[in-house]
């Protein structure tokens, strides 16, 4: 029962979606939209599991003093600062004791980690309690900002957006821009390869790369542009189609196996 019921659920929902596809009626559409909403909502619950995993792995690193354990503090601080900022917001013009509040929450976090890591639990637990009292005291007495547990105003908190704009975005954009270097080193790697397949790949890549290069002699760029256009429109189209058919059949076959309960590897029984 424990093992079979999930597969029965898979079959029922899978078969329903297959039938739903042929029914254009509003009521079928209605259920379809419901199910898609559900998938999203379950995803958020799963995210809580994810954050918990990140937290435990980081604390575990600190506890066992694994290599580079100190950096786990950076992860945890980033995580908690962002959560605190995402759930609080400024009411008036002044910040009041907001920064003290954030800092006391951070020390609370630090003390809690210490409690689970060190042997002297009583001391650290007491300190945690103290910083909790400070944080709560500020939260209840200071009116210049609020705990936005009920409105989405936390998302427009200035510091929250600042962190998003000046920490997240630059790192993200820089990681993305590293691709420029990596594509160069990848091209070099392809250049050294000594077999017919790699050579074909390289020649096609060079033709397409140089299609707009104006420094080539003998009107070569024009031929390059024409050839690369032809490459993109003809062999590329053919190969893409062959791959798409293959992938499509792979997806169809795998989905069918999943619905029929032939493929069970994803439930840990393969």
């Amino acid at each position: 029962m424990k093992r079979q019921l999930p597969f029965l659920l898979v079959f029922l929902f899978g078969a329903f979606m297959v039938f739903q596809y042929y029914v254009p009626h509003e009521s079928s559409e209605f259920v379809y939209e419901f199910l898609l909403d559900w998938v999203m909502i379950i995803g958020i619950f799963a995210l809580a599991l994810g954050i918990w995993s990140l937290y435990t792995v980081s604390v575990d690193k600190i506890r066992h003093k694994k290599e580079n354990w100190a950096y786990s503090y950076v992860t945890l601080i980033g995580l908690f600062i962002m959560v605190v900022l995402g759930f609080t917001y400024k009411v008036g013009d002044s910040w009041g004791f907001y920064s003290v509040f954030v800092i006391s929450l951070m020390t609370l976090l630090g003390f809690l980690i210490q409690t689970s890591v060190s042997k002297d639990k009583g001391l650290w637990l007491g300190l945690s309690g103290l910083s909790l009292v400070v944080a709560l005291g500020i939260a209840f007495t200071d009116d210049s900002w609020g705990i936005a547990f009920m409105t989405s105003e936390g998302l427009s908190n200035t510091m929250f957006t600042n962190f998003a704009d000046f920490v997240l975005t630059p790192i993200l954009a820089t990681m993305f821009s590293l691709l420029a270097f990596f594509i160069a080193s990848a091209a070099y790697r392809a250049f050294r390869a000594r077999n017919i397949l790699a050579t074909l790949l390289l020649i096609a890549a060079i033709i397409v790369m140089l299609r707009f290069n104006p420094y080539m002699p003998f009107g070569l760029p024009e031929y390059m542009a024409k050839t690369s256009n032809w490459l993109m429109n003809v062999p590329n189209l053919a190969a893409q189609r062959a791959i798409v058919i293959g992938i499509g059949l792979g997806i169809v076959a795998t989905s069918l196996k999943v619905i029929l309960g032939i493929e069970r590897g994803y439930m840990g029984k393969g």
């Binding site: 424990k2 019921l5 999930p6 597969f7 659920l9 898979v10 079959f11 029922l12 929902f13 899978g14 078969a15 329903f16 979606m17 297959v18 739903q20 596809y21 199910l35 559900w38 998938v39 379950i42 189609r241 798409v244 058919i245 992938i247 499509g248 059949l249 997806i251 169809v252 795998t254 989905s255 069918l256 999943v258 619905i259 994803y266 439930m267």
Partner: peptide
Amino acid sequence: WLSRWPLAFIVGTTAGLNFVRYLRSDFINQ
């Protein structure tokens, strides 16, 4: 073991969805 139910729901619905969709777009249409 209870956590497998929601997973079964997610996998089941999307497998059903993908089955017909890809059969149409990547098989018949191609």
